[in-house]
């Protein structure tokens, strides 16, 4: 049981990292990876939204959706949007500075495809509520990890004299590709050997 949970966690964190291997959630990945501090906090906020959304989705999947399966997408989106609204109010109250730093990307967590992807994957793989939460923590952690690694590299790359053709988004895309190459090494990690 705990081995299964560990596998789900590691898989979402490293092997099938949402950003670097599924290429989900790329907009905040490129938008907020300019500075490490904001990257960590956006990652934390996204992880929180993921966990709450995962719990709500498990609940909906168990009690509501069997009666109305056609409501799946719309109810998931509703859950995510309301969670994000909640996080937004919370951050605005607790840390106005962070609220300003995250700017448009905070409400944009609503449309972060990584979160919708997460709840859909979780449903299709028939995870239990506990497995779903572990999966969400792993995915959120993986998202944060990718964001922080990217921010570290971009802060460093800012200081080097990049050729004009690649400056800006082009370089971010190339860096993301290279990190993704490195993450390929995690293929099959903890899957019990082949």
């Amino acid at each position: 049981m705990s081995g299964e949970l560990l596998y789900i966690f590691i898989s979402a964190l490293l092997v099938n990292n949402f950003v670097l291997s599924y290429f989900l959630g790329l907009c905040p990945f490129f938008g907020v990876s300019g500075k490490i501090d904001t990257a960590v906090r956006l990652g934390a906020a996204t992880t929180f939204v993921m966990v709450v959304a995962s719990l709500c989705a498990s609940f909906l999947h168990a009690f509501v959706l069997p009666y109305a399966p056609y409501l799946q997408l719309i109810s998931y989106i509703l859950v995510i949007a309301s969670t994000v609204q909640f996080v937004e109010m919370f951050i605005k109250k607790i840390s106005p500075a962070l609220f300003r730093a995250l700017g448009i990307f905070l409400p944009l967590i609503t449309t972060n495809c990584a979160i919708l992807g997460l709840v859909l994957f979780q449903t299709s793989r028939q995870y239990s509520a506990l497995e779903g939460v572990v999966y969400a923590v792993g995915a959120g952690g993986g998202f944060t990890l990718a964001l922080v690694l990217m921010a570290g590299i971009r802060e460093e790359a800012e200081l080097s004299d990049l050729p004009k053709v690649v400056r800006g988004t082009a370089m971010s895309l190339l860096i993301a590709g290279m990190i993704s190459l490195a993450f390929m090494g995690f293929a099959g990690l903890f899957s019990g050997g082949e």
Binding site: G185, F186, G188, F190, G193, E194
Partner: peptide, 14 residues
Amino acid sequence: FGGLPEGVMYAILL
């Protein structure tokens, strides 16, 4: 613990 027999390249890149 991974699927590949060798991981030095990936370890260094990571």
